[in-house]
Amino acid sequence: MAQHIAQKLRLTVALLGTVSRKDLAAAFRNVNPNTAFDLGRADKWLQGRAQPRQLSVYDDWSKLLKLEQSGAWIAQSDLPGFTAAICARHGIDRTELERRAGAQFEASSGHEERSLGLALAGTYACYSHALSPYYRGQLIRGSLSIETGPGPHGLTAAYREVLPTGQLLVGGPVTPTKRGLYAFLKETDGDAHFFLCLFPQSRPGSVLGGYMCGGAIIGPEPQPSLTRILIVRLRDPTPEAWGGYLPPDGSIARDLASLGLTIEQPEAVDRQLAQFLVADSKDGGASQIPPAEFRAILDVFDRHWLRHSG
């Protein structure tokens, strides 16, 4: 059974001095133009999420490293034995090779994270359900800007809504992961907080989507709220006055066109976007807990707590 494939590949990369997966694939092709080494799967192999199934890949690997051992040995050997064999064959110190492999892997990972950050950076138009009970059933528009900074991710977001009571501005860190894209946004001079839980970004990154969780800003009572949100990338920043509640008969496609993003078949797109945004809603609005429902439960547990507090 194949084992330690990711670590063995990293040691191979360090030994050969290849700086990218394309370089590694080219090295395999040099020993066998018809190699089954798959550039598309190399990323998973190097991350340890999968391993080559064809024995021919290991045979080509043995030729690449100029080893006397077979491809099957490369697949099945333990890591210390593999490291010792390639160090002896190429006259390199084991500690030095392992140092190179570790440094190169960290640099590669950091480069990928920075590339992801650059791909996310930009300006977006956001559409979600209004959280205020006074505008229930309407959509609200907001602008989102994502910027890069120092560090592996170093991403920060600023989200703005134009409300009847004034401008709402929240901001905070953005965390991209393999399973999702997350942002925790809070108001600098207030107590508004929002959390974005989105699908992971995909190239070319034209749109993001998922959930936004927060409290209603305009309303008589605080209400924990949840709404689906669509975040559409724009080529230019939104005008300062853009935003606020979309009229009940408003069109997202027409609204995007006013921002310079004209989409083909706008009526069909509007239907598709509306279906996405209302899918979790019973009445076309955000998912919210009526305060009275929670107060009834609070009354039960408060009374029990007070009766048994002494």
Rank of each mutant, 00 (worst) to 15 (best):
D255K: 00
I218R: 04
F276S: 05
S251P: 06
D255N: 05
G209N: 12
S258F: 07
R254P: 07
K282W: 13
T238C: 15
P247W: 14
D249E: 09
I231S: 04
R235N: 15
Q272F: 13
F276M: 06
G250R: 12
I252C: 04
K282V: 13
L226Q: 01
Y245R: 03
L273A: 15
A274L: 09
S258C: 14
K282F: 13
V207P: 08
L246Q: 05
D236I: 09
G260E: 06
S202F: 08
I229H: 02
L277A: 03
R254K: 13
E221Y: 11
V269W: 15
S281R: 09
W242R: 14
D270N: 07
R203V: 09
P239E: 11
L246K: 11
A253Y: 01
L208S: 10
C213W: 01
A279C: 09
Y245C: 07
L196N: 01
P248I: 05
L230H: 04
D236P: 07
P224K: 00
P224L: 08
Q272A: 15
L246R: 13
L196V: 05
L261K: 08
A257Y: 06
I263L: 15
E221V: 10
L230Y: 04
D236L: 12
S206I: 11
S258H: 14
G209R: 15
D255G: 07
Y245H: 10
L226T: 04
L277R: 00
C197D: 10
L230S: 07
Y211D: 00
R271L: 14
R228M: 01
R203M: 11
A274W: 05
A216I: 11
A241Q: 09
Q275D: 15
A257N: 03
R271T: 13
W242A: 15
D249Y: 05
I217K: 14
L196F: 04
G244Q: 09
G219A: 05
Q275I: 09
T262D: 07
E240M: 08
L259E: 08
R203C: 06
E267V: 02
D270F: 03
